[in-house]
Design a protein around this nucleic acid. Structure first.
Lengths: 259, 259
DNA sequence: TTAATAGTGTCTATCAGACATTATATC
DNA sequence: GATATAATGTCTGATAGACACTATTAA
């Protein structure tokens, strides 16, 4: 129940029900938890970049030993996004540059399991896009936290705890939409990047190859990139120019203070 | 606190905190409420169609006498969408044909008011698109429920209770996006409609005039409409053909069972 | 010089906005 | 026939996919 001295649980099952309340569980308000789908780009088996996510192994019933999204209860003194950030920090050490609300899941069937009674939990799910610099030094050493491909086709376990498979699929759909409309890809990159790097990100997320020349033309026409006078050297070829992203950042969500 | 025999509250303030828990309020999980932004098309002052929403007058502090979104607490035995539907039925009598989750609002500041202490509530907000047939016979006779233009520019009260003004603005933004991409307009119409009627809906939502011929061309090319062999007679002009919507309906949300 | 990738130019099919024209109903 | 709106046709500029071509670096 405790990892690195900090209590955590996977989304869909909060840790403790106050003893005084167990007998009246049916009449209580549902428990409220926050969890996060974290997307990162890493090389797949075939060497190409693909989408991966860190998952947490369940250490208690229900769904013991299955993989789950990192998550935990919302505290009284923190915002929804604040809870997502704190929980990510505690369970995975990640401090994402990009974090946005995905959806609130609260169906009656979602936490049911064959041999454990239903346990009503409403999860407000966030999604994050992270790059290597968002990870702590000791990430790979953490127990019960492991990388998994985002799609079963690439070797992700078919079965995740609770309804987390469906949540990840929905997050993938949202991610692809955002990238297609040019509002998300750069979050996987550092401040400076080449157009080839940005294209590789888009190709990995959309899972298809894009025309080099057309991609360049469209990105430059979008007015969201700014040319720098820096070049990336080191390759055995003409050094590419480095660009910055200058477009809008948080578009598509309500303001910070109310969420 | 009770309207038509059924207890209800406006989103952002649930009715009762169990007595045993008041002293430990700070340590409790935040209260969970559901509320709904209901959009309907009605003639504006200038005669043109515009967006309106039914609001509920606050009958208690905080925000006494201000207008608020209909809403109430989530019960233990109902889904999020189920709670939204029940609450709409109880407060306004409306049974919307279209209902979708909008966003979860849970910032710490959102319920604060000058002379009342903060009262932490997380609201999961739904939005509905309704037409005349979704309304009960007695709608206009209801106390404390009134129509308001969705935009302050059209005469909506500037100040709504809690953070509901911001919520409505976000719902408007989402609605315009959905209509622009052709996935929502038909929810304001009955099963059969003319292209002119569909165009009027789009014009009202987007608040701009659209070219008749281009609109027709684009809608027919979208493969989401089916021509019938029926015509609408009665006008003093050539009778227009009636169409049905046959495109996808619930696109863009996770499946029903988990929400 | 060669390999490798950066970066440019251009052809074409498709699409969106603007607007002219024809069709068919009621009065 | 007058009027009003339905329905069709067409011109034009912008955009997206395909792909050929030139540029510049390191080895």
């Amino acid at each position: 129940m405790s990892l690195f001295g900090v209590p955590f649980v996977a989304a869909g099952s909060v840790g403790t029900i106050p003893a005084a309340n167990i007998s009246e569980r049916e009449h209580l308000q549902p428990q409220l938890a926050i969890s996060t789908v974290i997307f990162a780009l890493r090389p797949k088996e075939d060497g190409k970049l693909g989408l991966w996510l860190p998952l947490v192994k369940r250490v208690r019933e229900p769904f013991l030993n299955l993989w789950a999204l990192p998550g935990g209860p919302l505290r009284a003194d923190e915002s929804l996004e604040g809870a997502a950030r704190r929980n990510l920090q505690e369970t995975t050490g990640i401090e994402p540059a990009y974090l946005e609300q995905l959806y609130a899941f609260g169906g009656l069937q979602r936490a049911q399991h064959k041999d454990v009674g239903a346990h009503r939990v409403v999860s407000i799910v966030y999604w994050a896009l992270v790059r290597d610099s968002d990870f702590p030094e000791d990430f790979e050493a953490r127990h019960n936290v492991e990388w998994h491909p985002a799609e079963p086709a690439d070797g992700c376990p078919e079965e995740l705890a609770f309804d987390h498979r469906e949540i990840v699929d929905y997050a993938l759909w949202r991610l692809r939409n955002k990238v297609e409309y040019g509002q998300a890809g750069y979050h996987f990159l550092g401040e400076l990047f080449t157009l080839a790097q940005l294209r590789e990100v888009h190709e990995a997320v959309l899972n298809k190859t894009l025309d080099k020349a057309n991609f360049r033309r469209d990105m430059l026409a979008s007015n969201t990139l700014e040319e720098t006078d820096l070049f990336q050297s080191g390759g055995r070829h003409r050094p590419p120019k480095l660009f910055k992203y200058t477009g809008p950042r948080g578009l598509g969500s309500p303001s910070r203070s109310t969420t």
